[in-house]
Amino acid sequence: MERKKQLLREAVDRRKENRRLRKRNRQWRWFSRLFLAVLLVSVVLPCFFFLRVAPMHPEMWSDQVEKKVVVPEVEYDVFQRRYNESVENGFCLFGDVDEDIVLVREVEWVEDPEIQRKGRIRFDCIKAMKKNWRRLLFSSDFNFLGTVHTHPSGAYLSRADARNLGSSWWHKSVKGVFDGRELNFFSYGEPGEALEMSVISFGGWYRA
């Protein structure tokens, strides 16, 4: 009789232990799925987004490579229309980097910069990226290229501009400055030397 009671207790204990192990396994599976979901959202998707939206172009960092920046006349007009000597203005550039050229397909004026006054501007292109997210993700020749901002005089990078370009090399191919008369572009490889640039007039095929 005592033997049967002991066997029964052991069977009950094993059943409890099995339940506890199954519960722990369910918790670990749930935790693993949660961890993978967080990893996907926080690491994988942002990496995919930036590689797709603003792909890096290491050839732009080399001072031995000479690329030409091509800006359609209709997009160049955006800089001229928004130029103001009283305050600096910012613009976001979208287009494509080819073997020989950087083709600016679209220029987006930044309406609400974080800081905007004569001699200084601070802005980002998050709103412009959100506006164009479908084209950025699904069009092979429509990427984020970089930014342009205006100067009251002198289409060159200030020291602060050069530092900013140096810290944003991983997502900006070019950085431009427009002074109302001249538009110059610079790259991470040679921030002190302007890239060759041309304004051209042609049809609407350049838009993605």
Score class of each variant (00 low, 15 high):
94 F>E: 05
27 Q>V: 08
116 Q>E: 06
26 R>G: 05
36 L>W: 14
96 D>I: 07
126 I>M: 09
42 S>H: 08
43 V>I: 15
79 F>S: 10
72 P>R: 07
76 Y>W: 13
80 Q>Y: 07
97 V>A: 06
74 V>A: 07
44 V>D: 09
40 L>D: 01
125 C>Y: 02
73 E>N: 10
62 S>D: 12
107 V>P: 03
137 L>T: 04
117 R>Q: 13
61 W>G: 02
115 I>W: 00
119 G>Y: 05
55 P>Q: 11
50 F>T: 03
130 K>N: 12
65 V>D: 12
41 V>G: 04
90 G>M: 06
112 D>P: 01
28 W>F: 10
130 K>H: 08
45 L>S: 07
49 F>E: 00
109 W>R: 05
31 F>H: 08
60 M>H: 05
122 R>S: 08
81 R>E: 12
79 F>E: 01
138 F>C: 00
88 E>N: 12
62 S>L: 11
103 L>W: 06
148 V>A: 08
59 E>C: 00
118 K>M: 09
38 V>I: 15
23 K>Y: 12
107 V>S: 07
128 A>R: 01
140 S>W: 11
118 K>W: 02
89 N>E: 04
23 K>W: 13
106 E>Q: 01
45 L>M: 14
89 N>F: 00
70 V>D: 05
113 P>N: 11
147 T>F: 13
86 S>R: 14
48 F>V: 15
67 K>T: 01
38 V>P: 03
51 L>Y: 11
99 E>V: 11
53 V>Y: 07
126 I>W: 07
88 E>C: 06
96 D>R: 10
98 D>T: 15
139 S>F: 03
136 L>N: 02
32 S>E: 06
25 N>V: 04
87 V>F: 04
72 P>T: 08
69 V>M: 08
24 R>G: 07
34 L>R: 11
140 S>Q: 09
101 I>Y: 12
126 I>D: 00
121 I>K: 01
143 N>Y: 04
32 S>K: 11
105 R>F: 00
112 D>H: 11
139 S>D: 13
113 P>M: 10
66 E>M: 08
140 S>G: 11
28 W>G: 00
141 D>W: 02
30 W>Q: 03
105 R>I: 04
120 R>W: 06
44 V>R: 09
103 L>Y: 06
67 K>C: 02
84 N>C: 11
121 I>C: 02
144 F>Y: 13
24 R>Y: 13
77 D>G: 02
148 V>F: 01
71 V>R: 05
45 L>P: 03
116 Q>V: 01
77 D>I: 03
91 F>H: 03
56 M>P: 00
113 P>L: 08
122 R>A: 10
65 V>A: 14
135 R>N: 12
52 R>C: 04
84 N>L: 09
53 V>C: 11
31 F>L: 04
118 K>P: 00
95 G>I: 06
106 E>I: 02
95 G>Q: 03
147 T>D: 07
98 D>F: 03
55 P>L: 09
116 Q>S: 04
49 F>L: 14
128 A>G: 01
60 M>R: 07
106 E>F: 09
145 L>Q: 01
61 W>E: 04
24 R>C: 05
126 I>G: 01
67 K>L: 15
115 I>E: 11
85 E>L: 15
147 T>P: 00
92 C>F: 04
104 V>F: 06
72 P>D: 09
53 V>F: 12
95 G>K: 01
82 R>E: 12
78 V>P: 08
72 P>C: 11
